[in-house]
Amino acid sequence: MSYAIFVNGQIHHVEDDGQTPLLWVLRDTLKLTGTKYGCGVAQCGACTVHVDGQPMRSCTLPLEIVASSQITTIEAVEGAEAEAVRAAWLARDVPQCGFCQSGQIMCAVALLRTVGSPTDGDVDTAMSGNICRCATYNRIRAAIHDAAGTLRGQTT
């Protein structure tokens, strides 16, 4: 079947089975490979994208249900939160192997869009769906707090 999907502000016509996970549509068809396959069962968070602004695991998102949604991937996530998060990630050299970091960043941006000054508890709940096998968690946490600080500085 043919589906029209909105990804990163563009409309794409995709010819595929409606049950195909969005993850593979993004990666194989649209060549947006920043979104990673890590587990395929919504355990690791490496495939997180934003669907109408909400973080979602694209490995468990069938193509047929996202045809009317706005999808944003790591390649195009932008705005104050995304900039602050990326700057904080860079300043702290968060990534090691880096494979999970697209998903981590997508979740961190979503968290900061909802909670301006997240506590450690907020970070735990929002980010514990994202596995980092290199265990860069402490730097991720610190970078989220840094980014929140940057964003607060911008608003005051």
Binding site: A42, T48, Q54, P55, M56, R57, T60, L61, P62, I65, C107, A110, L111, T114, V115, D122, T125, A126, M127, S128, G129
Partner: peptide, 13 residues
Amino acid sequence: GEAAMRCSTCHRE
């Protein structure tokens, strides 16, 4: 669910 970790992050209809 909580912010950025809603049920709908993974569970569909």
